[in-house]
């Protein structure tokens, strides 16, 4: 299988006042297409920074990040935005739905940014995803009318609406109770198996992390071992 994400000796430094902080140090890894990977580590270990680098939200201080075959080091802001729009889906810890529009519009939003589909095509795709995430009945509701679990499911639908090759989720269950958290990860797993989309999610929740196919541990910005969880399914395509 081809690597959809490849990091080679990637480091990321930040200045906190006068102090230089190395959030990620010499990280190298490859994620294959269709994998369902969790990145695990304590708070401040660099999980989010690693996801930001993979998601083209941030640029490495050194090393190279190859996403969908493109080295993102020297890409300009608009080019990075295009990669995110077309190849990467995001699921946020706080759901980050647009509060002033309906669920339907939230999920549709990335398609509107892309501008490739007709109105009818967009409608079909959005409704299909809402159905798959069990939210079809809430299409016209606003986010503040839904529960946390429903909102996160909507976020999953939004992340998948553009048929990305990669979905990144930064602690997607942190603001959910245990039951909902498991449900969300299982839903993500279903999407992974059904759509063949590569998922990478960060967590520090033991109950959730082992639902991934692989677990990558990170500590003090350094990647540790990559562990198989033993839960592996063959990828399925759309």
């Amino acid at each position: 299988m081809s690597a959809i994400v490849a990091l080679h000796q990637v480091s990321k430094d930040y200045m906190l006042g006068k102090t230089r902080v190395q959030a990620v140090r010499n990280a190298s890894l490859q994620i294959q297409k269709g994998e369902f990977v969790s990145i695990v580590g304590p708070s401040g270990s660099g999980k989010t920074t690693l996801l930001n680098l993979i998601g083209c939200v941030d640029s490495p201080s050194s090393g190279s990040v190859i996403v969908h075959g493109q080295d993102t080091r020297h890409l300009r802001d608009d080019a990075l935005a295009d990669i995110r729009l077309r190849h990467i889906g995001f699921i946020f810890q706080s759901f980050n739905l647009i509060p002033v529009v309906t669920l339907f519009r939230n999920v549709e939003f990335p398609l509107l940014l892309q501008g490739d589909l007709t109105r009818k095509e967009r409608h079909l795709r959005v409704m299909r995803l809402l159905e798959r995430t069990g939210l079809a009945a809430h299409a016209l509701h606003r986010p503040n009318e839904l529960s946390g679990g429903q909102r996160q499911r909507a976020a999953i639908a939004r992340a998948l609406v553009t048929a990305p090759s990669l979905v990144l989720a930064d602690e997607p269950t942190a603001n959910l109770d245990a039951e909902n958290g498991v449900m969300i990860v299982d839903l993500m797993r279903q999407m992974n198996e059904r759509e063949g989309v590569t998922f990478i999610f960060s967590t520090h929740d033991e109950r959730v992390m082992w639902r991934a196919t692989y677990v990558i541990r990170i500590e003090d910005g350094k990647l540790r071992e990559r562990e198989e969880s033993g839960v592996r399914r063959p990828p399925m395509r759309l």
């Binding site: 939200v57 608009d78 935005a81 995001f90 647009i98 939003f109 892309q114």
Partner: peptide
């Protein structure tokens, strides 16, 4: 969020 989803500046 809009930027993360792919909206340009």
């Amino acid at each position: 969020t809009l930027r993360a989803l792919g909206a340009r500046r």
